[in-house]
Design a protein around this nucleic acid. Structure first.
Length: 254
DNA sequence: ATGGCCTCGACCCGAGGA
């Protein structure tokens, strides 16, 4: 079984990319973020024609998450019941006995800004809810754009980024608190190439220079981590025309 | 040269992303 995550940065623009990627990478489940679509505009027919059931939670212009699955989805939850939020950033479904959570963690904009405080509060509430989800189902997979690079090796230039949003100590602690619930970063369960990133700024030829951040993650509870046989980042779609600035991450479960 | 891009919405710039 393969689970993937991809921040598509507008599904309206990226639907052809998503369909092409799924044709070449027929994963069982993909969590997507930043759909930027209201639910009435969601391209259900095109995705079902590609062989996927789909659930989504969207809003106008910003945010929006969706889960595509080859197998049926049950027990759909939108947003965190512990954190009332207008912004559509969380979607959960149970698939083949696995609780799959799709998350788009707030950006944070700048350290100590209002958006940064919202990010930290959001992540603390997310932690509490994930702890409850894990208690309900020990098979938990949390996939998404966390907007936090866990360690300096996940940052192309740690000195330049020191203390900045996405790497600041409080954000890393908040991500660590998610792991402490009983989750593992699937990517780090395996030997990986150095300078591996999942996002590159559109500006300054950052992708061509491989100057990015690893901020898109797949977190697995212990029973799923034990089943995980690989985790990779697929840089290929970042090279396509009019790409998302993020690229997919894929975990394989045996 | 301290910026550079992309998307959206509303109306050609501003907000937000990371």
């Amino acid at each position: 079984m393969q689970l993937a995550t991809w921040n598509v940065n507008s599904l309206n623009v990226r639907l052809p990319h998503l369909l092409q990627w799924l044709a070449e990478n027929p994963v069982d489940v993909i969590c997507i973020q930043e759909t930027k679509l209201t639910n009435d505009k969601f391209p259900v027919a095109a995705i079902e024609a590609a062989g996927y059931a789909v659930e989504f939670s969207g809003q106008k212009t910003y945010n929006g998450v969706a889960i595509l699955s080859r197998l049926p989805m049950t027990d759909i939850v939108r947003n965190n019941p512990l954190f009332p939020d207008e912004q559509q950033r969380i979607l959960a479904a149970t698939i083949d006995g696995i609780r799959v959570v799709c998350a788009y963690v707030p950006n944070g904009q700048a350290v100590d800004s209002d958006k940064y405080r919202y990010k930290l509060g959001w992540m603390a509430a997310f932690r509490d809810w994930l702890a409850a989800e894990l208690a309900r189902n020990p098979q938990l997979a949390v996939l998404g754009d966390y907007n936090v690079a866990p360690e300096d090796r996940d940052v192309h230039d740690p000195a330049a980024w020191e203390g900045e949003v996405h790497v600041s100590p409080r954000e890393r602690q908040a991500l660590g608190a998610l792991l402490d619930v009983g989750l593992a970063d699937a990517y780090r369960l395996f030997d990986q190439p150095e300078k591996a990133y999942s996002w590159w700024d559109y500006r300054m030829l950052r992708f061509q220079k491989n100057q990015g951040l690893r901020i898109d993650h797949i977190l697995l509870s212990s029973p799923l981590a034990a089943r995980c046989t690989g985790c990779t980042i697929d840089r290929v779609p970042r090279k396509w025309k009019q790409p998302s600035d993020h690229t997919p991450v894929i975990a394989t479960l045996g």
